[in-house]
Design a protein around this nucleic acid. Structure first.
Lengths: 118, 118
DNA sequence: CCTTTAGTTCAAAGGTTATTGAACAATTGG
DNA sequence: CCAATTGTTCAATAACCTTTGAACTAAAGG
């Protein structure tokens, strides 16, 4: 049940850029980077778009080699493929994430954190 | 007769990434970077596609704020907007150009250099 | 003035991408 | 087993992108 991922050397630069050139996907990547190391499941991104559409965008990110998706039970854990991207395109991910960091025009992934009641 | 260019702060990250996510345009940018400082006219890129199509791609690059186009006589001089891009998205252009540097899958801008006959 | 050169604009065609709702599959918990 | 949860697939639609040829503009040179 492992989903298809490109190998590191199959990752194409124009493809990665094109995939990141969508506000919804860029917001996903920015959020993944902000929680780096922590695998997140899809539902974390449901503020961005419908479930169906999210499935589509996450597939694009996975097929481009930007993210890794692991099926665990009924949910999928999404992680950034930082190692592969850094090896392949040194500095690219960091500069994209830094540039996206202060971009108010990007949609925000809402706070699903456990709220601490005052 | 000055063509419309976005101001530096109008340059949008998703837009820049999307525009660079096309092999033809990435090849143009890579070539511009390899000749940095030297303004090139459109005809330099005619190996990549038809004249009409080139006009379209160069307009996309200009409208996204990636290049600057200056009309001089009957020709247009194209330059990379490195200062603006570096200010806006530090490191991005460099990492894209470096990554594109060794990408054999990108179309190449042919040698229009003055051939030295043996 | 006429022609060449350099590049644009236009309309049309064809392709790809994004988004949607309805239906589906798979795992988990009662 | 039944229901809920999580996410996918499908078909449809609308929007956008790329590419084309034909017609055009504008400057420069003879």
């Amino acid at each position: 049940m492992t989903l298809p991922h490109p190998s590191a050397d199959q990752i194409s630069l124009p493809n990665v850029l094109a995939v990141l050139g969508d506000p919804t996907r860029l917001a996903i990547v920015r959020y993944l980077a902000s929680k780096e190391g922590v695998p997140l499941n899809c539902s974390r991104f449901l503020d961005l778009c419908s479930k169906t559409n999210l499935s589509y965008h996450l597939a694009k990110l996975r097929e481009a080699g930007v993210t890794r998706t692991e099926a665990v039970g009924t949910s999928r854990l999404i992680t950034l493929r930082r190692d592969d991207l850094d090896r392949r395109f040194p500095g690219l991910l960091d500069s994209v994430i830094a540039a996206a960091g202060d971009d108010a025009s990007l949609p925000a992934v809402g706070g699903h954190e456990i709220e601490v009641r005052a």
